[in-house]
Amino acid sequence: MSGTEKTKAHVEQAKGKAKESVGRAVGNERMTAEGRTDQAKGNARQAKEDIKDTLRH
């Protein structure tokens, strides 16, 4: 996995977790949903890079 893509995936996942937590704390369902979406994007980015790494080796 490329270092920058790995970092982007982790940042996106962390941002999503934080946004989801804040959304739950303040009772904002939209923010909670956006947080889950950000986490899913990070997971997808990481999965894509894992597949690319597998195919390279």
Results as ranks from 00 to 15, higher is better:
Glu5Met: 13
Thr37Arg: 12
Gly35Tyr: 04
Asn43His: 11
Ala33Glu: 15
Thr54Tyr: 12
His10Thr: 11
Lys6Asn: 07
Ala33Tyr: 13
Ala25His: 08
Ala18Ile: 15
Val22Gln: 05
Asp38Leu: 11
Ala40His: 06
Ser21Cys: 04
Asp53Ile: 02
Glu20Lys: 11
Leu55Gln: 14
Gly42Met: 01
His57Tyr: 12
Ile51Asn: 12
Ala33Ser: 15
Arg56Cys: 01
Lys17Asp: 06
Lys17Ser: 14
Met31Ala: 12
Asp53Cys: 00
Asn28Cys: 08
Ala44Leu: 05
Gly16Met: 03
Gln13Val: 02
Lys6Gln: 05
Glu34Tyr: 08
Asp53His: 06
Arg24Ser: 11
Glu29Gly: 10
Thr54Leu: 14
His10Leu: 14
Arg30His: 11
Ala18Gly: 10
Thr37Asp: 15
Lys41Pro: 01
Arg45Val: 09
Glu20Asp: 04
Lys48Cys: 02
Gly27Trp: 10
Lys15Asp: 01
Asp53Glu: 15
Glu29Cys: 08
Ala47Val: 02
Thr54Pro: 00
Arg56Thr: 15
Gln13Ile: 04
Lys8His: 07
Arg30Phe: 08
Asp50Glu: 13
Arg24Leu: 13
Asp38Gly: 11
Lys6Ser: 07
Met1Val: 14
Thr4Asp: 03
Val11Tyr: 07
Asn43Met: 03
Asn28Ala: 10
Gln13Cys: 02
Asn28Val: 07
Val11Lys: 12
Gly16Asp: 03
Glu12Tyr: 04
Arg36Cys: 07
Glu34Asp: 13
Lys48Phe: 12
